[in-house]
Amino acid sequence: MISALQSVPFESVLAGGLLIGFAALLLFAFNGRIAGVCGITFSLIKHHPTLPSMTWRWLFLGGLVAGTLLYHFLTNTPFPEPPNNSLPLLIGGGLLVGYGTSMGSGCTSGHGVCGIARFSTRSITATACFMAAGIVSLFVFKHLFGWSI
């Protein structure tokens, strides 16, 4: 059963996916860069970031926040509910996502949207691994442990 709260209209799902694809293609075709959000974000907190190549990263991330807000205001769609997790689980989940995407050199955007499009076997492998791990993790925490997540 799919609850009403969790359903997004199918047109929005498709339009959203197409927009993400066009955005990734734009950055690749014009700037020759991979739109991997974790790579772009985490290079900003490296020890010696060099200034010139940092600007486009800040602009991309600022655009990410602004684009999301613009979508909600222009389409009059309410903001989604924040995650249900308790504070320790939010911190634990964030640490896992940050550490794991750094170690695995990419996330859903870099490996999933861009890497697969380059037919990179590393990215196809990583995407299969994080999808499977996400499904197993949710099953274990929610259904086996019975945590409210």
Partner: peptide, 11 residues
């Protein structure tokens, strides 16, 4: 690209 990406994620 960031703007389009952000709008796509929200949609």
């Amino acid at each position: 690209a960031g703007l389009l990406f952000g709008a796509g994620l929200a949609a």
